[in-house]
Design a protein around this nucleic acid. Sequence first.
DNA 1: TATTGTTCAATTGGATCCAATTGAACATGT
DNA 2: ACATGTTCAATTGGATCCAATTGAACAATA
Lengths: 250, 250
Amino acid sequence: MATLLPDLPAPSSHSDTPGEDASAPLGSLIAKSKPRYRTATEFVEATLRDGILSGQIPGGTPLRQEDLAHQFGVSRMPIREALRQLEAQALIDFTPHKGAVVTTISAADAADLFTVRLALEPAALALSLPHLTAEDLLRAADSIADMDGERDLARMGELNRRFHMVLYSRADSPRLLGLVEQHMAVFDRYLRFELAALGWDHLKQDDHRALLEACHSRDTDTAITILTGHLRHADQALRRFFTNRTDRTA
Amino acid sequence: MATLLPDLPAPSSHSDTPGEDASAPLGSLIAKSKPRYRTATEFVEATLRDGILSGQIPGGTPLRQEDLAHQFGVSRMPIREALRQLEAQALIDFTPHKGAVVTTISAADAADLFTVRLALEPAALALSLPHLTAEDLLRAADSIADMDGERDLARMGELNRRFHMVLYSRADSPRLLGLVEQHMAVFDRYLRFELAALGWDHLKQDDHRALLEACHSRDTDTAITILTGHLRHADQALRRFFTNRTDRTA
DNA sequence: TATTGTTCAATTGGATCCAATTGAACATGT
DNA sequence: ACATGTTCAATTGGATCCAATTGAACAATA
């Protein structure tokens, strides 16, 4: 049965922005005492999604319902519901009577993803920048600082996402922010390739600091220019990396 | 049980771009002879989605699984799978143990939607325009012509979508095109309000013709300017319309 | 040999059953 | 009257069963 889930950690909550809802006095305690998932479907969906995005479940992997049911210790029903949601997120291909297969990543898809990010993120930044608060900029700076010396891939992706999302967060457009977050998460599938292409350390922290500085001085045009160049640079690095490989897919 | 589905027409295939795959000799015949949906889940999902987007199932409607199962003549299982997919498309809100409710539309959400469209569609147009063929422009012109005198709301939305999608279709970015199509479809929920605000006839055909002309002469900057103004104009008209109503939601 | 038909195990699609949760109505105590 | 338990019908979550489909191996025929 080829143990598909080596031992996936409990999926990161993906939304632990501490100090966000300080309105509830003992909210954090309750949050810890309560089980994280209220339904098996939620748990399966989050676990599989994290597994796919982190690369632990590579593209092309067939997801056999009965196998998953065994590994999760549930019946096939919550599996099926979870697979439907992953299908709607374009993380798996679902064919009637044939089953689900994890979508493959490729150089073409990476370029596609950057096309979308280049459409979404500058727009979000432009809308958000005028309304960023001092605390926002501090939190962004913290995220950058935490990235220095971080060697864990998943946490690196998380910190990078957080930095960008803080800068976008004041854009008053839930739909836009949702799309941005979703596509940044999908990009995690390419993160290890990007790190292999760009190297771990000086990755793009220069861009990050310059971007933060532009936000400080409320210079929207400069900020967008930096962000656009930032994304294009990663795009081109990834493109070069892929063209130097024989197996263009994963 | 309040018959929720007055008698929804068979969901429009949403992808009938005739002459697209003329590679297969008898492909069209086969496509007609084969049943349109290979699984009950597909049918339920498409029907409910069309019902929501067309406004026949208004926002706030609770979707009771057993009721739907009866009305569709199936068990609750395909209903549940379909609801999961609709949830992932943000067309319904799903709360554990409480059930599904159709998301409400509102002035704020309309503005949100335009924010996304303004980020996506100009980008798609810019990428696609250089690669548009003569046939593409003819098909776009046909769509415009068909819109003249069309008085059916659903078909009007369909034709409008087709016109825009043809212009975007040569953008080599499946993800971007998918997002554009999805959000144009969601906008159908606001179409009747837009028509009420702008009037049926001279709606925005001027913009359409000017946009087509700019595409003819490969003038990307002008085309984007027209498209952006086109979207902003609709946005503002809808905004005014909503602020003149007491009930801001539907 | 190449093609077509057939069988059959593996897998998914759908139906039905039972358990768990919710919320509203009601009851109880202060 | 108010707050707090308590019961119970409605509804969803999950498990198990059976039917339908697929595809691969095999058999039959020209």
